[in-house]
Design a protein around this nucleic acid. Structure first.
Ligand code: FES
Ligand code: FES
Lengths: 144, 144
DNA sequence: ATATAAAAAGACATTTTTATCTTTATATTT
DNA sequence: AAATATAAAGATAAAAATGTCTTTTTATAT
């Protein structure tokens, strides 16, 4: 479904949502170790998110990445859109040139409801919402 | 979501479901042209399905691929499983080493219901079912 | 001011996916 | 039996995704 890069991005952003703020920036090395993904690739990924202003960063000693209050209010589809684009969510499940109710593919009616509700879930919940569930210990962003 | 190869496989199988039977075999060239995908890649794909006995084939003049009665009763997850495997459907949405209710990732609860219902739709409907809807003109497997 | 630590940028390498081409095996038709 | 059409198998190529390494820039601390 998602690319590895998007998955990494989501996990990293949730990690930042829980552990960072403007006073506590976190470097790629720490994040990569904690969520167990390749550090250089993560760096690239976070730089993309940063360029898109979905997260923020400061260079130099004590620098690193962090989420500010506004960033916390964004949603996971914003993250996915930045890394993978939304094509996956708009395109036909079996590869027809377009996906529409007017010209549905053979499995459009079976697939579309899920696609739509998933998008809704990913947009109506904020990053902060997901982070809170994780902080409560009800869910995880890494497993030992 | 699905690989191109799985998408091609599904469209090709639906094409066969509609146009072929043991008396009317169809070659890769015709299928590839009709559903507008690369013929050599499709050949590879159909060979995999054939080896898995999900579809059938006969070599030589007037040979080709076809679906027999049993094949028509199979479902699309069988096709996907043969080409992509089921890993995609079992694995965690954000890439944790496993997906489970006991150790849910941050978005497990949001994603899992869709995954399960989608699997149900793809397994309870047969290939024949989808083909019939297409034959009735209610859905398509190619668009001009 | 200088040294340092970190992101940013860019170049490079590997793997996977996608696609093509060539040869071989095998049914069918003549 | 021979010719032919087609799937099957295998080898190769191209593109995309993933991953690594090196250099540059910049904010901070000394
Ligand atoms: S047309 Fe195929 S999923 Fe909508
Ligand atoms: S644990 Fe992540 S989707 Fe189930």
């Amino acid at each position: 479904m998602l690319s590895n890069q998007s998955k990494y991005a989501i996990r990293a952003v949730l990690y930042l949502a829980i552990h960072s703020d403007v006073k506590n920036k976190i470097g790629t090395k720490e994040i990569a170790e904690k969520i167990d993904i390749p550090a250089p690739f993560l760096a690239k990924t976070l730089q993309s998110l940063s360029k898109a202003k979905l997260i923020h960063s400061i260079k130099g000693p004590n620098g690193g990445f962090y989420l500010n209050k506004e960033d916390q209010k964004k949603n996971l589809l914003d993250i996915i859109e930045c890394i993978d684009g939304l094509r996956k969510f708009n395109e036909c499940f079996i590869g027809l040139p377009r996906c529409s109710d007017e010209n549905p593919c053979a499995i459009h009616h079976v697939v579309k409801p899920f696609k739509e509700s998933l998008i809704k879930e990913l947009t109506t919940n904020t990053i902060e919402d997901f982070a809170k569930e994780t902080q409560k210990g009800k869910s995880f962003i890494f497993l030992k």
